[in-house]
């Protein structure tokens, strides 16, 4: 299902925005270099205080709108209604293009409706792990790994915003740029950029209305189709990480990345790491009949690096997936060490 004219203009606006962005980038760089000299510390502190509002604002602001998400060649747009009332988050997202479908969330209860089409199997799509709270509850000292900086003021989707840059302090992570609405701190636009300033991933509201006046009907499932409900479990991250990392260790990871909420991988040996801004997951699995190639692929800011290794004459596949540069992903994959015990345990099955 397609929404008429507006989505077309969105699409092309995005394309053009991309063009202009590309053109404007060198200028922007030159400008910020000269402007940032005074009040540097002040600037960073202000930026940090804005960032502290980001997490709470995402949940506790009520709004409706349409946003566009682009990485690589892919562009998706989604319609969202989000309401915070009586301490509970309710939201509904409707895909605007490609495979239609919707997510509806009431607190920890998520309903996902997808017309029976395409190749997505339903249980793949539903987030099965801890939802939004897992990471946002722990504000990490990411100032150590990124240089926060107040870039200036702007307007996005009709709202005044503050623009904040998080520039990576080393080459193992990407830089980010965030646009936060001035009154609420709501994230209305974001970029992930590589060291050359190229935008790898682009998220942006194209229409937005921040309002507490969101009717119950806007949060109801409306698509006809197969429906799947799942209750999200509150996370128990610290405990599960320990047990999940049994069997293998990382000898190296980019500074600042800490084990975070553990993915509930079917085969169980996966761990996610986060530096408070970016995240990557490490999967370690015995190789069955399926052989995977060695090397990296990426879409937008997301890299997937795979390699096979052998322990006690048993082949394992190591996959590192995340919003980190390919070289970093490779270094992480190369740093995985599998215990003989795990190899033994698995081969006994």
């Amino acid at each position: 299902m397609r929404f008429p004219v507006s989505s077309v203009t969105v699409r092309f606006r995005h394309v053009l925005a991309g063009l202009f962005l590309g053109l404007a980038m060198p200028l922007a760089h030159a400008g910020s270099a000269t402007a940032e000299a005074p009040d540097l510390a002040d600037d960073a502190a202000t930026a940090m205080s804005w960032l502290e509002r980001l997490g709470p604002a995402l949940n506790m602001t009520s709004y409706r709108g349409v946003f566009v998400y682009a990485r690589g060649d892919q562009v998706h747009s989604m319609q969202i209604a989000h309401r915070f009332r009586n301490g509970q988050v309710e939201e509904r997202l409707v895909m605007q293009d490609g495979g239609s479908g919707e997510f509806v969330r009431k607190g920890l209860n998520v309903v996902c409706v997808l017309p029976d089409r395409g190749r997505i199997s339903l249980n793949e799509v539903i987030p099965s792990g801890p939802f939004a709270e897992a990471f946002s509850s722990q504000l990490m000292p990411f100032g150590d790994w990124y240089r926060p900086q107040l870039v200036g003021e702007d307007r996005v989707a009709g709202y005044d915003v503050m623009t904040i840059a998080l520039t990576a302090r080393d080459e193992n992570r990407y830089s980010h740029r965030l646009w936060l609405e001035k009154n609420t701190g709501l994230l209305v636009k974001s970029h992930v950029r590589d060291a050359d300033g190229e935008v790898l991933e682009h998220f942006q509201f194209t229409s937005l209305e921040i309002t507490d006046d969101i009717a119950d009907e806007e949060l109801e499932v409306q698509t006809q189709g197969r429906e799947i409900t799942r209750t999200l479990q509150a996370s128990d991250a610290s405990q599960s990480v320990v047990s999940r990392m049994n069997g293998w260790t990382l000898n190296w990871q980019p500074e600042g990345f800490m084990p975070a909420a553990a993915p509930r991988s079917g085969k169980g040996k996966a761990v996610a790491f986060s530096d408070g801004v970016a995240a990557f997951s490490v999967f370690v699995e015995p190789v069955g009949s399926l052989k995977m190639p060695t090397g990296a692929s990426r879409v937008g800011a997301t890299t997937i690096y795979m390699r096979e290794m052998s322990v006690a004459e048993r082949p394992f596949l190591v996959a590192v997936v995340g919003e980190i540069p390919p070289r970093a992903a490779r270094k992480v994959a190369d740093a995985v060490e599998i215990d003989d015990i795990l190899a033994l345990e698995l081969s006994e099955r």
């Binding site: 980001l54 997490g55 995402l58 949940n59 946003f67 998400y69 990485r71 892919q74 998706h76 989604m78 969202i80 989000h82 997202l93 895909m95 490609g98 495979g99 997510f103 395409g118 997505i120 793949e124 799509v125 987030p127 099965s128 792990g129 801890p130 939802f131 939004a132 709270e133 897992a134 990471f135 946002s136 994230l187 974001s190 998220f203 996370s235 975070a260 909420a261 553990a262 993915p263 509930r264 991988s265 996966a270 996610a272 986060s274 801004v277 970016a278 995240a279 990557f280 997951s281 999967f283 879409v299 997301t302 997937i304 996959a319 997936v321 995340g322 919003e323």
Partner: peptide, 30 residues
Amino acid sequence: YLLEHAQHSSVGAGRGSVGYARLVSAGGGY
């Protein structure tokens, strides 16, 4: 792999809608 990563880290990364978008992007491709 992309889906699992998107599910557990991006959706949970305190970035709200970006997380959903990554999830849909990883799951769909169309």
